[in-house]
Nucleic acid binder design. Structure first.
Lengths: 138, 138
DNA sequence: TTGCAACTGCAACTCATTCGCAATTACTGA
DNA sequence: TCAGTAATTGCGAATGAGTTGCAGTTGCAA
């Protein structure tokens, strides 16, 4: 467990950290709260996540068409996802399309500190069902 | 003004549409509500936007670290932005890094229907000020 | 012109997230 | 080891974007 310098170690923060560590994918604050069996106040979970984010060991992201933020440990570089519009499964994309692209697309003088790429569509399993629904005008 | 087939033309919807048309960048529902001088109920604005989005003539997006959705007319292809973390200016990026990149990065069997790319950082004007603040630990 | 499904306004509601404040706790230095 | 203190926590109340139920209104097809 990496611990940001100057950050107090408390039971609640360690547990939030472990919840993220134990999870295969990004979690929402409420999901973490539930996984910790509501042992701590939800505001504490939010504050721990905010502290981790500020310290740079956690990244926060919001998926299109949702209003809940997801949090994940920043381990070894970054990752992008293909997100299924039907089952909401997040499939990691190998490599980063942004790195492949010519850097000249960013405006001159702009200092890039990060980026976010999300690809939307239907995963193999949902493809057919989604098309059926679409045909029926749902 | 393009009008989706089967959608009723009402004064409120036309005004919402014009507000988007007249704007240089994406607007939030509240911004539209204000620009229309609160003439209509905010729920009406939301419902008009939802109807436009469903009809495919408006796209909805949410920026990282905010909880307000932005709406824009879908005119001629898509656009990505470099977003300044300090002044929140949205600078259009020429071209689409995703199109340049090899398509093989997306998982096999995944049917892509759309994507979203946001580049974060500091624009030329905010660069220095942002660095100063960072140094002072803000 | 009429009928009615779609649309609107209003107010009350939801839900994620934040905040104020008093009580608690992790760390520092003696 | 222990006291002092600044950071952290828990609680509940507040916020703010967005949604919803419902009664009244309106676009539009016949």
């Amino acid at each position: 467990m990496i611990w940001p310098e100057g950050m107090k170690r408390t039971k609640q923060r360690e547990d939030v950290y472990r919840a993220l560590e134990a999870s295969e994918g990004p979690l929402s604050a409420v999901e973490i709260y539930e996984r910790l069996e509501r042992h701590y106040a939800i505001s504490t979970v939010y504050r721990a996540l905010a502290a981790f984010e500020k310290a740079g060991i956690v990244s926060k992201s919001t998926l299109m068409n949702t209003d809940t933020a997801l949090y994940a440990l920043n381990e070894g570089g970054h990752q992008h996802y293909a997100i299924c519009l039907r089952c909401h499964r997040k499939i990691p994309i190998d490599g980063c399309p942004f790195e492949d692209a010519s850097g000249q697309s960013v405006p001159e003088g702009f200092l890039v500190t990060g980026h976010k790429i999300e690809v939307y569509g239907y995963c193999e399993k949902c493809r057919e069902k989604a098309m059926d629904q679409h045909m029926r005008g749902e």
